[in-house]
Design a protein around this nucleic acid. Structure first.
Length: 673
DNA sequence: TTCACAACTGTTTTT
DNA sequence: CAGTTGTGAA
C-alpha cells in the first residue's frame, strides 16, 4: 500500500508556502516542477491562496481587479476552470484570447500597426519585383500591365500547380509575348505574385482599413482583408503595448497578479509583454506579481521559450516530488533529463515493475508484442510520426490520397496537420467536416444502439411524431440493406446507395448543404470537393476519383481517430508529442532514427548522453530529443516499455550508453525474411 | 566540375 | 514552406 509520509506531506506543504510567500510579498517567481509533480494543483492552490486572504480579496474587489491566469491551450484553460470553479475575481484565458480581448478595442492603434505591416510587406514585394525585372532586363510598365491582367491571372492560377512545361505552354497559348523570354519557373511565379501583392496591399492602404480582425481558426494572415492570425496578433500586441505606457498601466491596474501556465511553451513575445508591464510596475513602485509555472525540460514546441530569460529576476521554486509513477519509472525519467533535478516519489513503498528497453532491427511487429505481453487495459503506444499512427489506426490510404491535392501539398503541406489530422473538430477543413458528418450519419444508421432521435437528427424533414415506429424500422432496415457491403464499399458507393432512398438522399443533401433540389448529389459533392481540394473549380477529375474511390472503412477509421475512439483492441495510439499532459498505466514508446529530416534522431541523443562537448547545433538537437523522450516516458504510471528500432542494432557501444539510462536493455531479433 | 533551377519530400503541436 | 536531391546546361 503506497502512502505519503508525514515528512513528505510537510515538505510539499512547505513548497506551497514558498509560493504563498512570494505572492504575499508581491515577489515574482518561477515554479519548476517535474513531470507528474502536480503543477496544476500548485497553480490552483496559489490562486486560492489569494482568494482566501480577505484583505487581498477586498482590495481586488474595490479596485475591480482580477487575478489573470493565462494558459497555452484551451484544454488547459478548461481544466483549471473546472478545478477552481467560476469566480468573478479570476480571469482564466488562453494567451491569444486574452490578448485579443485586451487589444481588439484599441482599433486605432491596431490599424496603425496594420498599415505599417502592409507598407513593410508592400516594400518587400516591390523589392522582389524589382529584382526580377532587373535580372531579366524587363520593362517595368509592360511587365506589370501584363501580369496584373485579369485574363492572364486566370490562366496563371489555373496552371501554377502544374509542372514547369505545361505551365509555360498554357501561358504562351494565352499570350505569345512570353515566348520571348526564358524565365526560371519558380522566380516567375514569385514575381507575378509579388506584383499582385503590391497591387492588393496598396489598394488596402488606400481603402484605409476601418477594422483589424483576428481569426483564431485561420493559420495565415490575410493582410489585404485586414485579417491577422496567431503570430501577427502577438506581434502587434507586443509592439503596441511596449510603445504605449497607458496600455501597460491598464494591464497593471486590471491584473496585479499574472500566472502563466506551461511557461516553457509560451512565445517570447508574450514574455516580453509581461516583462514590460513588470518593469513599468517597478518604475512606478506598484505591486505586481508574476508567477511562471512549468518545466523547462518539457519544452517540445519550437515557438516556446524553453527556459525563462532573465531567470535571476525571479524567485526560483522547485517541486521535486512525483505523484504519478513508480520509483522505477521516476529513476529512468530522472536519468533521461540528466540535470540532477532529483525528482523522487512522494509515496513510500512505491516500487513497481522494472522498465524494459528493447533494441530491434527495423520493422518491429508491435501488435505481436502487445499480445505477447498481454497488454490491453489502459495501454498507450507512442509513435513518432503521424504517418505511423495513421497506419496503425487504418487510414493511411486516405492520408496518402489526400496529401496529393494542392490543398495539402507544396506550401500547403502544413494543412495536413491543420485541417486533416486536427483533433479539434472546429479547426478541421470545411469540406472534411462535412465528410466527417457523413461518416457519423452512416455509423449512426448502422449502430444498433442509436436512438430514434439520434438517427432523425440527420433527417431534417422527419420528426419523431411524424413517423410511426413501424415505418421507421422499415426505413432503417432498407437503408442498412443498401449498406450491406459497407466493409468493402467506397465512399462514393455509399453516397450513391443512400441516395436511392428518399430519406437518405435528403439527409445527404442536408449534410452537404445542397439546397437546390435539381442538383445531382454526387456532382454537387464533387464540385465541393474540387473547391476544397483544389481551392477552385479547376482540378482534374481523375485525382478526385481517387478520393471518392477510397473505401468508406478508411474514412471511418479516420473519423474514430479524430474523435479519439479507442480501437477494438483497447489500445490507444498517440504521437510522443501528442501525449503531453496525459497519463496511462502502461506506456510503450517506439523510437526510430529517421525523424525530423534526420537519420540519427535518437542515435545522436544516446551517443552523446553524458558527453558534454557538443557544438551549438548538436546541443540543440540533443536537448530536443531529450525533452521529447522525457515527456513521453514520464506518461507511464506503472509500466514503461521503450522499443528502439535501429540499424545500429549490433552496436555494443550504443547499448552500453543506453544502459546508463535504462537498467534492462535487451535485443530482439526479428526472424530472417 | 560547377551552377542553377526544377522537382521532390516530409516533424511535432498549439493558438 | 524549407531543405534536399536530381537534372541539364555551361
Amino acid at each position: 500500500m503506497k502512502t505519503i509520509t508525514k515528512e513528505n506531506q510537510n515538505k510539499e506543504q512547505e513548497i506551497q508556502e514558498k509560493i504563498n510567500m512570494c505572492i504575499d510579498n508581491s515577489e515574482s517567481f518561477c515554479f519548476d516542477a517535474g513531470a507528474g509533480a502536480g503543477k496544476t494543483y500548485a497553480l490552483v492552490k496559489s490562486i486560492k491562496h489569494i482568494l482566501q486572504d480577505q484583505d487581498k480579496r477586498r482590495l481586488l474587489k474595490d479596485r475591480s481587479q482580477k487575478i489573470l491566469c493565462i494558459t497555452y491551450t484551451n484544454a488547459a484553460k478548461d481544466e483549471i476552470l473546472d478545478r477552481i470553479g467560476y469566480n468573478s475575481e479570476i480571469k482564466i484565458s488562453t494567451i491569444h484570447d486574452f490578448l485579443w480581448e485586451f487589444i481588439s478595442i484599441q482599433q486605432i492603434l491596431l490599424i496603425h500597426e496594420h498599415r505599417e505591416k502592409l507598407r513593410d510587406e508592400q516594400i518587400k514585394a516591390e523589392e522582389q519585383e524589382e529584382q526580377f525585372i532587373e535580372n531579366y532586363s524587363l520593362d517595368k510598365n509592360i511587365f506589370e500591365k501584363k501580369v496584373s491582367d485579369k485574363r492572364f491571372l486566370d490562366v496563371f492560377y489555373k496552371n501554377c500547380h502544374e509542372r514547369a512545361d505545361p505551365f509555360w505552354k498554357a501561358i504562351r497559348v494565352h499570350d505569345d509575348f512570353w515566348g520571348n523570354y526564358k524565365f526560371s519557373f519558380g522566380k516567375f511565379k514569385d514575381a507575378v505574385k509579388a506584383v499582385n501583392r503590391v497591387v492588393k496591399y496598396s489598394q488596402a492602404l488606400e481603402d484605409n482599413p476601418s477594422k483589424v480582425e483576428y481569426r483564431p481558426t485561420q493559420n495565415r494572415d490575410n493582410l489585404a482583408k485586414n485579417i491577422i492570425s496567431h503570430d501577427t496578433l502577438l506581434d502587434y500586441c507586443k509592439k503596441i503595448i511596449e510603445e504605449y505606457d497607458i496600455l501597460q498601466q491598464m494591464l497593471l491596474d486590471s491584473y496585479p497578479y499574472i500566472f502563466v501556465d506551461e511557461y516553457q511553451d509560451t512565445d517570447k513575445k508574450v514574455i516580453d509583454i509581461i516583462s514590460c508591464v513588470k518593469k513599468y510596475a517597478e518604475d512606478k513602485n506598484k505591486s505586481f506579481t508574476v508567477g511562471y509555472f512549468g518545466d523547462a525540460l518539457q519544452s517540445i514546441y519550437r515557438d516556446g521559450i524553453g527556459t525563462l530569460p532573465n531567470i535571476d529576476e525571479y524567485e526560483l521554486i522547485q517541486k521535486k516530488f512525483n505523484r504519478r509513477s513508480t520509483t522505477q519509472i521516476i529513476s529512468v525519467i530522472e536519468k533521461v533529463r540528466n540535470d540532477g533535478f532529483g525528482q523522487q516519489s512522494i509515496y513510500e513503498n512505491n516500487e513497481g515493475e522494472s522498465c524494459e528497453f528493447y533494441l530491434t532491427n527495423i520493422d518491429f511487429d508491435l501488435s505481436e508484442f502487445l499480445k505477447k505481453n498481454d497488454l490491453t487495459e489502459n495501454t498507450v503506444c507512442l509513435l513518432l510520426k503521424n504517418n505511423d499512427i495513421a497506419t496503425k489506426r487504418g487510414f493511411s490510404e486516405l492520408l496518402d490520397v489526400i496529401s496529393k491535392f494542392p490543398r495539402f501539398s507544396e506550401q500547403n503541406y502544413g494543412n495536413i496537420n491543420n485541417e486533416f489530422l486536427q483533433k479539434n473538430s472546429l479547426h478541421i477543413g470545411w469540406f472534411l467536416r462535412e465528410i466527417l458528418e457523413f461518416v457519423k450519419f452512416i455509423e449512426c444508421i448502422i449502430d444498433d444502439r442509436s436512438t430514434v432521435n439520434q438517427v432523425i437528427h440527420f433527417m431534417p424533414e422527419l420528426t419523431a411524431s411524424k413517423i410511426t415506429f413501424d415505418r421507421f424500422s422499415k426505413l432503417i432496415k432498407n437503408i442498412r440493406l443498401k449498406l450491406a457491403n459497407i466493409e468493402t464499399m467506397t465512399i462514393q458507393e455509399c453516397i450513391v446507395q443512400l441516395c436511392q432512398i428518399d430519406e437518405g438522399d435528403k439527409a445527404i443533401r442536408n449534410i452537404f448543404s445542397i439546397n437546390d433540389e435539381n442538383d445531382d448529389v454526387m456532382t454537387y459533392i464533387k464540385n465541393r470537393a474540387l473547391d476544397y481540394l483544389f481551392f477552385s473549380d479547376e482540378g482534374n477529375s481523375e485525382s478526385l476519383d481517387k478520393f471518392f474511390g477510397v473505401k468508406f472503412k478508411k474514412f471511418e477509421n479516420w473519423h474514430n481517430y479524430i474523435f479519439d475512439k479507442s480501437m477494438d483492441t483497447g489500445i490507444k495510439y498517440y504521437t510522443l508529442h501528442g501525449s503531453k499532459g496525459l497519463e496511462f498505466d502502461n506506456v510503450i514508446v517506439v523510437l526510430q532514427d529517421n525523424f525530423a529530416k534526420r537519420d540519427d534522431y535518437c542515435k545522436q541523443f544516446f551517443e552523446n548522453y553524458n558527453n558534454s562537448i557538443l557544438n551549438e547545433k548538436g546541443q540543440k538537437r540533443f536537448n530536443e530529443v531529450r525533452n521529447l523522450l522525457y515527456v513521453a516516458c514520464s506518461r507511464a504510471k506503472k509500466k514503461l516499455y521503450v522499443i528502439y528500432e535501429t540499424e545500429q542494432f549490433k552496436d555494443d557501444k550504443l547499448v552500453e550508453k543506453i544502459g546508463k539510462i535504462f537498467p534492462n536493455v535487451e535485443r530482439i531479433e526479428t526472424e530472417q525474411e
